[in-house]
């Protein structure tokens, strides 16, 4: 019976208009010159050339990538032990701990980022603590440290949840088998738990890297007005300078970087699994 098929048709039309058309517009604008009206397009690669020939923009791109990678690495290094410890609890407590990690993500990201502004200020709570132990005020707000802190704070829950899921999915009898075969705890962690939880780490990496590389309000709030990442450049092009063509080109460059890194992550994801399967057989 196909009687309900047709009720999805309106959405397909809507989807084409609201999802596909805007994406096509970005591509169209990226490859055309500014100021043309809808009827006459002049195709060009100027927008891309302008980006790659300007040292300022390349610097911004480099800084954005470094910060996104640093954020991702810190999220893995902190998130893995946290997820691991959570996974050691009994199911009921695990549920509570997962809730503890999830709850803050339901609260407005902007509000939570804004909260750090007060904490990190020169006379804020951290610096008051420093002065108690006799350290002078350390400049925290409007530094790279603050930007990375803000990103880790906002995005690490995704990492923890992904790793936790892959750890709980793991077959516990494998660990017992490793133990029976004489592996100590470190060995069985390195050779059983870690490889089996790697898919979770990989999907966590994509979930952290993507928002980190494109974020523009975290650098603005915690890095200060002068702190520019690629997202801020796009924001300026669209809302201040009004150069949509150039802005679209930068967004495309960013999208390509994200797609490439996801592709790489997937490749890494596949290789250890096949490796593990091979050595087991």
């Amino acid at each position: 019976m196909k009687s309900f098929q047709r009720i999805s048709y309106p959405y397909i039309l809507w989807m084409t208009l609201m999802i596909v058309a805007p994406m096509l517009l970005i591509v169209l604008y990226a490859f055309t010159t500014q100021g043309n009206d809808v009827t006459t397009f002049r195709f060009t690669l100027e927008n891309f050339a302008r980006f790659f020939q300007d040292a300022v923009f390349l610097d911004v791109l480099k800084r954005s990538l470094i910060i996104a990678v640093a954020t991702t690495v810190i999220c893995v290094l902190l998130g893995y032990p946290i997820a691991y410890v959570i996974a050691q609890h009994n199911p009921k407590n695990q549920m509570r701990l997962v809730l503890m990690v999830t709850l803050p993500t339901w609260i407005n990201m902007l509000v939570r980022t804004y909260a750090w502004m007060g904490i990190l200020q020169d006379d804020g709570i951290i610096n008051s603590f420093f002065s108690l132990v006799g350290l002078g005020p350390v400049k925290l707000l409007h530094t790279t440290f603050a930007v990375i802190l803000g990103m880790v704070y906002n995005f690490i829950p995704f990492m923890i949840l992904q790793i936790h899921t892959s750890l709980t999915k793991m077959d516990q009898s494998l660990l017992e088998a490793a133990e029976d075969l004489g592996a100590n705890r470190v060995e069985s962690f390195l050779r059983v738990t870690l490889p089996l939880s790697l898919p979770g780490v990989i999907s966590g990496i994509t979930l952290v890297f993507l928002p980190a590389v494109s974020s523009f309000f975290i650098p603005k709030l915690l890095g200060g007005g002068q702190y520019v990442l690629i997202g801020n450049v796009i924001e300026t092009q669209f809302l201040t300078s009004g150069d949509w063509n150039f802005g679209s080109a930068i967004s495309l460059i960013m999208a390509v970087i994200i797609i490439l890194s996801m592709y790489l992550a997937k490749k890494v994801d596949r290789s250890p699994e096949s490796l593990g399967g091979g050595s087991k057989g």
Binding site: M18, L25, L210, P211, W244, G247, S251
Partner: peptide, 15 residues
């Protein structure tokens, strides 16, 4: 769901 929000945002703005 997968796109950076800023890309969705500017796409809709132009649309």
């Amino acid at each position: 769901v997968m796109n950076p929000e800023i890309v969705t945002g500017i796409g809709l703005l132009m649309f």
